[in-house]
């Protein structure tokens, strides 16, 4: 579904990703771990098409209608419409814009692109209520301004609500677990689990193993200096949790 080949990307003229490779298939859950500054957030931003990041070489391909398409040719909104979703590490507050209006604009833009019928206010209201129920969220969320005066945990849950509404085929969750207390983490993780399907894929970018207790990954990758230096199963995360990155980095440097 997603194939990243030899990706080199820079921000402010500084290369952060240096030959990254990653392949994700439908139905899989991947975790990308790595020490600070290894390029985790850069990878998320590049995938979503943030204008501050430039790709100097390499490819990102994503399956659209059974064919692999060049993601780097797509504007950020096209990527989203084709099924790529990024849950932001720091979701932006959008003053004055109600969550419901934002979600509806998003939902309808995607429907329109996919040739599906756009939702009326009434239809969309029902969809929102249903998603809130699914994620155990208070319906009051819907009427609040997007992320404005939300707690850290609420912002992260709001990202998952967006994911539930949009139903992307590939969800890239950038440190969605950071800054959450144990209960919030469990709620967010349960939400994500409810959205897992055999035809979609989830990539968790994280510092910590604990979210992987809830969302069990098929693959764990270690990102270092802009490249994936080791790939393993869920036990790799436990190993990192116990011993840190030192051992893996040593192996890599040798």
């Amino acid at each position: 579904m997603l194939e990243i080949k030899n990706l080199h990307a820079a921000v402010d003229g500084k290369e952060i990703l240096s030959g990254l490779n990653l392949k994700v298939n439908a139905g899989e859950v991947h975790a990308i771990m790595g020490p600070n500054g290894s390029g985790k957030s850069t990878l998320s931003k590049v995938l979503a098409g943030h204008p501050d990041y430039t790709v100097s070489s390499g490819h990102i391909e994503f399956e659209v209608n059974l064919r692999m398409k060049n993601v780097l040719d797509m504007a950020p909104e096209e990527r989203a419409r084709n099924g790529i979703f990024l849950a932001f590490q720091y979701p932006v507050e959008i003053p004055g814009v109600p969550n419901s209006a934002f979600l509806k604009a998003s939902y309808n833009a995607i429907c329109k692109h996919q040739g599906a019928k756009e939702a009326t206010d009434e239809m969309f209201g029902r969809i929102l209520i249903e998603k809130c129920k699914l994620l155990n969220m208070d319906e009051k969320f819907i009427d609040r301004e997007v992320n404005v005066a939300f707690s850290g945990g609420e912002k992260k849950r709001n990202e998952i609500l967006q994911m539930a509404v949009i139903q992307p085929r590939l969800a890239f969750l950038d440190e969605t677990d950071s800054g959450l207390d144990v209960d919030s983490l469990r709620i967010v993780a349960e939400g994500v689990n409810k959205l897992r399907k055999k035809d979609n894929a989830i990539v968790l970018v994280t510092h910590y193993q604990r979210i992987l207790n809830y969302i069990v990954p098929d693959f764990v990758h270690v990102l270092y200096k802009g490249r994936i230096i080791k790939t393993g199963g869920k036990e790799l995360a436990l190993q990192i949790e116990a011993n840190g990155y030192d051992q893996i980095l040593k192996e890599f440097q040798n």
């Binding site: 979503a48 098409g49 504007a75 950020p76 909104e77 990527r79 989203a80 419409r81 979703f85 990024l86 932001f88 979701p91 932006v92 959008i94 003053p95 004055g96 814009v97 109600p98 209006a101 934002f102 604009a105 998003s106 833009a109 995607i110 692109h113 301004e145 967006q162 949009i166």
Partner: peptide, 19 residues
């Protein structure tokens, strides 16, 4: 942020302005 949810620039500006 809004683009990453499929909303184009025109739509994003309109949402901001109306809000």
């Amino acid at each position: 942020y809004m683009k990453s949810r499929g909303v184009d620039e025109e739509g994003a500006v309109s949402l901001l302005l109306h809000g």
